[in-house]
Nucleic acid binder design. Structure first.
Length: 279
DNA sequence: AACGCGCCCTGTCCGC
DNA sequence: TGCGGACAGGGCGCGT
């Protein structure tokens, strides 16, 4: 379940390994991971000969900047990893473990960048500067940026009646939060995930703001959470899972107050909470 | 128009 | 041993 910390970890790994590599050919093995307006042949034709000049992240999406030796405009490949997407370089020790390679980017140096996705919930989009500008505008604020302040969070939440856990998952509001870190942050802020977003006081919004930043930064430091499927850019698991305080821990005692942690369902998706700390 | 729901997928786990 | 069902949950299309 790659969220912002997992995407960040993968971007850092790939940055070290494939920055300045040049794409030779692209092989699409499962076209359903490509955006509907991106036929495999077009992806291959447009990427051939391009240099991977920069690797970044926007929300939970990976962003590969691809430059051409002539004056062609820069292209950006956006990779949303969905639930089970992985981006691994072929010379990683664990690359042979990939069983569901959907797209293979063969590089001129003989290696390949492999996109593996068991469930094929992931999507790739290829953007021109113009289309990227529009796409970027659809994504919400970066939670680790300077623009994301307690006041900004309070202002954003103040107009929505949806449960705050659901609210946090909407990428148009804040970009990069998924179910794991939404639940973890709400626990640390002492806020019940079922509460309407607009019921949060300024103090509570400030606590949530602080919790989100702490949880995301800690998870980046731990190279992400491997709950079941996530792997980093070398195919390795993340180390944050043991640090989760509520996610996936229904029935266990709360580490803070000892009450039994609960699982509830909001919009067909699990939410986890401590009835003592988040009442 | 904001919001909730069902669907897309496959692998794993659990109960019978 | 095998099988059906629940579950995982990001994002999108649709109905309200």
């Amino acid at each position: 379940m790659p969220e912002l910390p997992e995407a960040d970890t993968i971007a850092r790994d790939l940055r070290d390994r494939v920055t300045d590599a040049v794409v030779a050919t692209v092989h699409v093995l499962h076209r359903d991971v490509l955006a509907p307006d991106l036929p495999p042949r077009r992806l291959a034709r447009r990427l051939r000969g391009r240099r991977i000049s920069r690797i970044g992240r926007r929300g939970k999406n990976l962003l590969l900047r691809l430059e051409h030796p002539t004056d062609d405009p820069v292209l950006r490949l956006l990779v949303n990893l969905g639930m089970t997407g992985r981006l691994v370089v072929s010379d990683s020790p664990r690359a042979h473990e990939l069983n569901h390679i959907a797209v293979r980017f063969d590089l001129e140096d003989g290696r390949s960048l492999l996109y593996d996705d068991t469930r094929r919930f992931g999507r790739m989009e290829l953007h021109t500067p113009d289309s990227w500008e529009r796409r970027d505008a659809e994504l919400g604020i970066e939670p680790l940026s300077d623009d994301f302040t307690p006041a900004a969070l309070h202002r954003l939440t103040s107009r929505s009646i949806t449960p705050v856990r659901n609210w946090l998952l909407d990428q148009r509001r804040i970009a990069g939060i998924g179910n794991i870190y939404a639940n973890e942050a709400l626990f640390r802020a002492g806020i019940d995930p079922r509460r309407p977003a607009r019921s949060l006081s300024l103090d509570e919004a400030a606590a949530l703001h602080d919790a989100l930043r702490t949880v995301l930064a800690d998870a980046i430091r731990a190279r992400g959470t491997t709950f079941s499927d996530y792997r980093d850019g070398s195919g390795e698991a993340g180390a944050y899972e043991p640090l989760l305080r509520v996610y996936g821990r229904a029935g266990e005692p709360c580490q803070r107050c000892g009450a039994t942690l609960e699982r509830v369902v909001l919009s067909n998706r699990s939410a986890f909470l401590c009835p003592g700390c988040q009442g």
